[in-house]
Design a protein around this nucleic acid. Structure first.
Length: 279
DNA sequence: TCCCAGGCTCTCT
DNA sequence: AGAGAGCATGGG
């Protein structure tokens, strides 16, 4: 279990297992984190700007944040209460999953804000990660609240007041109409975005799929990355290739309870190694 | 120039 | 219910 202390308005965390910053922050689950040339990461989540880095002794430092924000927000955001060592051990019962876990070591599933995650993965459809980041950034700059360090992700209420034409500066293409529909249905309560972690998985998927442009894959990403639905298993092109090439079409039984977490390890492994084909 | 990207909708069998 | 075209945009 980790320990932390606060000093000079920084939080120092010791003894975290399975927490690699590049793998966690740049594996395609979140789109607003950047790394500078010194290995310091910065990003915005939950209307807060954060800088962090991992020191050579393994200490993770969160800069310019206090104990209250750590306990109320970042601890959960980085999923620090979860024992990933146990999960990796369980997944590693399968040799291929073991290889994926070793390659993708230190990926944690972030607990992100639901509306931001939903919009991000609406934007992700038939798109590439570099371009997704650009569209998300323009969305925040144009319509998000100005905060210290940048712009917050816009609220559903704010976006529900906009039109497809208003979103032209994003250059998000056909996805703009989906973003507006999502904002309206969340803002007017037609979609209950804030209790989905308590829904059975299939009901939660159906709830999200009331939104235009949200199919099974986008729904599963939203559920996994912002609603603690660990059995959601988003199937994108890379996972489909991996399932065919590495697993003969079926996820091993040892991954059932943590299918979503396994998915993220497989996704990173497959995309990074580029060893896969569609055949 | 064509192909592809963390897919989905719409239409036609 | 299943297959296939079309979709906006930009990088390789």
């Amino acid at each position: 279990m980790y320990k932390f202390f606060s000093e000079n308005n920084n939080i120092y965390i010791n003894g975290i297992e399975e927490f690699d910053l590049p793998h966690t922050l740049d594996c395609g689950q979140a789109f607003r984190w950047k790394c500078d040339e010194n290995g310091v990461w910065s990003g915005i989540a939950g209307n807060k700007f954060l800088k962090l880095e991992k020191l050579s002794d393994g200490t993770v430092v969160l800069y310019n944040t206090n104990e209250t924000d750590f306990n109320n927000f970042w601890k959960n955001y980085f999923d620090l209460e979860r024992d990933y060592t146990q999960i990796v051990k369980k997944l590693s019962q399968n040799p291929t999953l073991k290889a994926a876990c070793e390659y993708s070591y230190g990926i944690r599933i972030l607990n992100q804000e639901p509306f931001e995650t939903l919009c991000s993965f609406i934007i992700s459809q038939n798109n590439n990660i570099g371009r997704i980041k650009g569209i998300v950034e323009r969305l925040c700059e144009n319509f998000g609240e100005k905060i210290d360090g940048g712009y917050a992700f816009p609220t559903a209420e704010k976006m529900a007041s906009l039109t497809v034409e208003d979103l032209a500066p994003l250059r998000s293409g056909f996805r703009a109409k989906y973003l507006i529909d999502a904002a309206q249905k969340v803002a007017n309560g037609e979609v209950d975005l804030y209790h989905l972690r308590y829904f059975p998985l299939e009901a939660a998927q159906q709830e999200l799929m009331k939104i235009k442009g949200v199919g099974p894959k986008v729904a599963d990403c939203a559920l996994l990355f912002s609603h603690h639905q660990d059995r959601a298993f988003p199937k994108d092109v890379w996972i489909k290739r991996a399932m065919y090439t590495l697993f003969d079409g079926e996820l091993p039984d040892c991954a059932t309870d943590y299918a979503g977490i396994a998915q993220q390890y497989i996704f990173f492994y497959a995309r990074d190694t580029k060893l896969l084909t569609n055949e």
